[in-house]
Amino acid sequence: MVEQKLIREDELSLVYGETYRPGSFKEQLKEMFTPKYLAFLLKPGAEDEELNRRDFEMNKFKTKRSLIRRLNSPLTILGGLIVFIICSWAVFPHWLSFIPFKDVAISILPGTNRPPSFEHPLGTAAFGRDVLGRLIWGARRSITLSLASIVVSLVGGVIFGTIAAYKGGWIDNLIMRIADIVSSIPGLILLVIIVSVMGYDLQNILLALGLLGIPGYARLMRSAAISQRAMTYVESAKVSGASEWRIMFRHILPNSMSLILVALSFDIGTAILGLASLAFLGFSQTDAVEWGFDVNANKSALINAPWAAIWPGIGIVITVMGFMLLGDGLRDALDPRSKV
């Protein structure tokens, strides 16, 4: 049997001897950033005389398909810009704010609740702390907390949701009932309990937030995957001998990712707000610089110094909006079928 196979292979290679090596991802990336290819990307009617007709068509086709082209809509670019700015705040606050963390968080300076001036473009909050500085320093904590907790809930939700949808039967029932139980726990109260029992420990809060987010994603993923399970390509993957895990995570998962992406972009906002609400209830570190905490702390001075509470709020809103726009654009761009 084996011998027969080998002979056949040889025959095939004899008849169709040419080999094909498509480049690895790195090489493709390299190719993408060659000047020729960039011309295709950026100039609408770019032509390269060296290419023959066929190559030209292929390149045109590739550029149409490439992610950069597909992310071309202005709203997506706006979202990307916002996310980029906020993330760079989170990464380099000490360079971008020109204010050391000590002055923003701990030290007590003269000039409480001053209106915007040249020195303090967005005014000052209590103890003379710069509002702009606190906004930039606060991005770090808000973004890291929300992203970390969302990653936990996303990974868990996707795995459990896909398994439940594909396996069906008692496994599906078990997973979904557990999800129901978990989602029936009021999150904020659980958080308050955790904080009051175990202290304000960031890891615990993150884990709790993340675990509480799993059922939502699991349910979403299940609904998307169930519709994909009935498709013929799943059958044909089975026919070609793919294992269950391969079918679940190689075939069904990428097909049902678009829904998850949208939910993800929405949930980043909710996570930030969740932390903010915790801070609003008074559970936070006093030396923490965080947007939710700022909104809570400065609500008492809303009439005297509205800037102190409003700017962090605007920060939350804009961040949520940025992630939403980017997620929306990504969803469109990642689906190879959609025509952009």
């Binding site: 498709m231 013929t232 059958e235 044909s236 070609s240 001998g241 097909n255």
Partner: peptide, 23 residues
Amino acid sequence: RRIRGNDITMIFQDPLNSLNPVL
């Protein structure tokens, strides 16, 4: 599963639906 795709294979009626659209 060892036999599927290896010794016996199957071709379906609608080729569009039997190929995974995102791969």
